Amino acid sequence: MTASIGMTAGHWLEATARVDALLREGARVSVLTQSGCAGCASRKGCGTGLLATRRKARPRQLTIETSSDLTVGQTVRIGLPARRFLQGALAIYGLPLVTSLLAGGAAEAWLAPGHPLVPVAFLAGLACGVIGLALWGRCQPGSYRPVLLDPSPP
Rank of each mutant, 00 (worst) to 15 (best):
L135T: 07
L117Q: 13
A38N: 09
L95T: 05
A134L: 14
P153R: 11
Q74I: 01
S42G: 05
T99R: 06
A121T: 05
T66F: 07
A17V: 06
A41Y: 02
G10D: 12
T99L: 15
G73R: 04
Q74Y: 02
A121D: 09
Y144Q: 05
T63L: 10
T66A: 07
L97T: 14
G49A: 12
E25Q: 12
R54F: 04
L111T: 08
P119Y: 02
L51F: 05
M1T: 04
P141E: 03
E14P: 00
C46H: 08
H11L: 03
L102A: 15
G142W: 06
P113F: 04
W12P: 00
V31H: 05
S143E: 12
C46D: 08
A107S: 15
E25H: 07
H115M: 07
L135C: 11
P81W: 04
L62G: 05
P96C: 03
C40Q: 08
P116F: 11
E25M: 01
S152L: 08
L50M: 14
F85H: 13
R60Y: 06
A41L: 10
L13M: 12
L111A: 11
S30T: 14
G36V: 06
R24V: 12
G129V: 03
L62W: 06
P113E: 10
L102P: 04
R145D: 13
V130R: 11
L90K: 00
S143C: 05
G94C: 02
K56L: 14
I78T: 08
H115D: 15
A52V: 04
G73H: 07
V31E: 08
P119K: 01
C37N: 14
T8N: 12
L133E: 07
V130Q: 04
A27L: 04
G79P: 09
P153C: 08
L95S: 01
L50V: 15
K56T: 14
G105L: 10
P116Y: 12
L90V: 09
C139G: 13
E25Y: 00
G125I: 06
T16L: 13
L23W: 00
L62E: 14
G26L: 03
L97S: 15
I5C: 10
T8K: 06
G137S: 15
G125V: 06
R145Q: 15
P113L: 03
V98F: 09
L62A: 09
L102R: 02
V76Q: 12
T48L: 14
P154V: 07
I78K: 10
P116E: 11
Q61H: 14
Y144S: 03
P81V: 02
G88L: 11
A57H: 14
M7V: 05
F85P: 01
G94Y: 03
L123N: 02
A112M: 11
C37S: 13
Q87N: 09
G45V: 09
G10F: 01
D150H: 12
Q34V: 08
G47M: 07
A57Y: 02
P153W: 07
G105V: 05
A134C: 04
R18V: 14
E14Y: 00
